[in-house]
């Protein structure tokens, strides 16, 4: 699968400009990259979330491809129905096989939390679709509330920095590993600054014979508290600090896609965003240490899984 940037940049974006996502939002960057990789014909589904409300304010739509939103939690079931209907109609000879591909773009709230059951069910049943998690590590659409993707110590509006509790008390869960445990053909983590890596992953994922999943870090300038022009730099920093390693699991084989050298300290990551600012005081030093330890442990575990 060759990536021809010149050709790709001349192609029409399948997500039209004029949508209402914030300046510096990573979501539209990721959506456009992935749809370039997937190509047409494609049907897209999104749950309730930033992307959904920003791209479909009736009577306008930003979607140049068929697109469906049903509710917050059920996008995996919704795309299951669409994909199954396609197979049914083709099998019965009611429509020709056009090689239609099915892609979900969902936030972390819809993926890690409220939609987990639905995602798990769809993966177990083996529907052929690509599920892209646009992971901005909190409920941004409703105003920056904590999700199970929010890291330890982070400020959100439901894990506020109070006099008794300094931000979120629990660390995020590893949804990518949870998805990989479903033994689906293709699972990956990616980040928008590594566009070639992301596009390659989307191509591999859509070509997989069964469900595929890419968890893409989607820096959110409003929720993470950084200037909007720094989204790509923040994305890079997440990978350089090993806060967000990029890797893939192909038919059960774990493969590391990038190894930072040197591995930057967690403090670089924490200093870059206002949501962690309160951690950089002496009384919260133990949280910073805990975060570094978690990153180190998870990185070591990943290296072991990837046999590097």
């Amino acid at each position: 699968m060759v990536i021809n940037l010149k050709k790709m940049s001349a192609e029409q974006d399948l997500l039209a400009p004029g949508h209402r996502l914030c300046a510096g939002c990573a979501e539209s960057i990721v959506v456009r990259q992935v749809l370039h990789a997937v190509g047409q014909p494609v049907v897209v589904a999104s749950p309730t979330g930033c992307l959904e409300v920003a791209t479909s304010p009736y009577p306008y739509t930003s979607w140049r491809v068929p697109w469906i939103h049903s509710a917050f939690e059920n996008v995996a079931s919704t795309i299951s129905g669409v994909e199954t209907m396609y197979r049914s109609l083709v099998k019965q000879g009611k429509m020709e096989d056009k090689g239609i591909k099915f892609v979900v773009f969902a936030g972390d709230g819809a993926t890690y939390d409220i939609g987990l059951q639905f995602l798990s069910g769809a993966l177990e049943r083996g529907h052929k679709f690509l599920y892209v998690c646009l992971n901005n590590e909190a409920y941004m659409n409703t105003g920056i509330q904590r999700s199970s993707a929010t890291p330890l110590g982070a400020w959100t509006t439901t894990s506020p920095v109070g006099t008794a509790i300094p931000g979120k008390r629990e660390n995020r869960k590893d949804i990518t590993a949870i998805v990989a445990a479903h033994d689906i053909p293709y699972v990956a983590q990616a980040a928008p600054h590594a566009w070639r890596d992301l596009i390659t992953k989307a191509q591999k994922a859509i070509a997989a014979d069964g469900p595929s999943f890419i968890n893409v870090l989607a820096p959110c300038q409003r929720g993470w508290r950084y200037p909007p022009e720094e989204t790509i730099a923040i994305s890079r920093l997440a990978v350089e600090t090993c806060v967000w390693p990029i890797y893939e699991v192909v038919d059960g084989e774990w493969k590391l896609n990038y190894r930072p050298s040197p591995k930057k300290p967690i403090t670089d990551w924490l200093q870059s965003q206002g949501r962690f600012r309160h951690l950089l005081t002496s009384e919260n030093r133990h949280i910073v240490d805990a975060l570094q330890e978690i990153v180190d442990q998870q990185w070591a575990k990943l290296l072991e899984r990837c046999r590097v």
């Binding site: 059920n74 079931s77 919704t78 129905g81 209907m85 109609l89 798990s120 177990e124």
Partner: peptide, 19 residues
């Protein structure tokens, strides 16, 4: 499906898909 909520959600997707 793994639940009734998913049953109706899948029906929504399937019906919107034109069958």
């Amino acid at each position: 499906v793994e639940s009734e909520h998913a049953a109706m959600s899948a029906c929504i997707g399937a019906s919107a898909a034109g069958g």
